[in-house]
């Protein structure tokens, strides 16, 4: 009787082991499928879009001269890259946009923190800031060109202007909307106003400040390209404008695609930085 029991037990464990290995296999398979599904979901529309782009001119649905197939555009892009033109224009554009963006961060974040902390200042300044924010940066581009000329200064200045307001307003609202309970709790521990600011207000407003940083990152590219189209002798915006005027349509499309790729990369980098700095925030999984 005892023997029988032992062997049954062994059998049971063996059965369970089998079960668990097969479960692992199922898990692994399941994981792969989820992963594949994820990749599929993310790329299918883009692939379809590119396929349409390729097919439409080839099938004569659109005029090939004005709308060349994507492979032709890719070829043109490669040509631009080999000739070195692309790198030159990109470096020029990035220097301007990163320059203006960085300057805006250096000015806006400290200023925003100060204004947000000083309630009266925020109340007085807010209307004016709202007016400036809602004045499209491009609308005052002529002013910048008049005052600062056609050189680098006016480009950097317009990017700076476009970045300052989202940064400033988000920083102010970040500081002003810190959970009052956190402030109360810190105050109850006898924190001085300066350490309260340093240890509670600033870390608590980081997520909102980052909203501003991402908005500014996006507009830094947008505004720059437009500015380069209007008055510049180099840069990606100039490249697009110039190729259009000289009827190099494939090169024009190559320039457009480069800009959207650069925009994507910048946004991706900012998102990664944000994730790193606000890793304490709740992550909602899909």
């Amino acid at each position: 009787m005892a023997n029988v029991n032992v062997s049954t037990g062994k059998l049971l464990t063996r059965y369970e082991n089998n079960q668990s290995t097969s479960r692992e296999r199922v898990d692994w398979l399941h994981w792969t499928i989820t992963k594949l599904h994820h990749v599929f979901k993310n790329s299918i529309v883009i692939i379809t879009f590119l396929a349409l782009w390729e097919a439409a001119p080839r099938l004569g649905l659109v005029n090939e001269t004005f709308f060349p197939p994507i492979t032709e555009v890719a070829k043109a892009w490669w040509g631009l890259l080999l000739s070195g033109d692309f790198v030159d224009h990109t470096v020029t554009s990035l220097t301007r946009s990163i320059g203006g963006f960085t300057l805006a961060i250096l000015v806006s974040i400290p200023l925003g923190l100060a204004i947000g902390w000083w309630k009266t200042a925020a109340e007085y300044l807010n209307p004016l800031l709202e007016v400036f924010r809602n004045t499209a940066a491009l609308a005052i581009l002529p002013v910048f060109i008049l005052l600062l000329g056609l050189g680098e200064t006016s480009k950097i200045a317009i990017v700076f202007y476009a970045c300052v307001f989202p940064l400033l307003l988000n920083t102010i609202s970040g500081v002003r909307n810190v959970d009052p309970l956190l402030i109360k709790s810190a105050r109850s521990m006898g924190l001085s106003p300066i350490s309260l600011f340093r240890k509670v207000i600033i870390p608590a407003s980081v997520p909102t400040i980052f909203v501003g940083i991402r908005q500014a990152g996006a507009s830094s590219i947008l505004v720059l390209v437009a500015a380069e189209m209007v008055g510049a002798k180099s840069g990606l915006g100039y490249l697009i404008q110039y190729t259009q005027f000289s009827f190099q349509i494939t090169e024009m499309y190559a320039g457009i695609i480069s800009i959207s790729v650069i925009g994507l990369i910048i946004n991706y980098l900012l998102v990664q930085l944000e994730k790193r700095l606000t890793s304490w925030k709740q992550v909602y999984s899909e």
Partner: peptide
């Protein structure tokens, strides 16, 4: 006279700093 570390407060809504472990 004011807040001091000789008194500790526990709030209903915890008041933990979300960016700290």
């Amino acid at each position: 006279a004011g807040p001091n570390l000789d008194r500790g407060i526990v709030f209903q809504q915890y008041a933990l700093f979300p960016w700290k472990t």
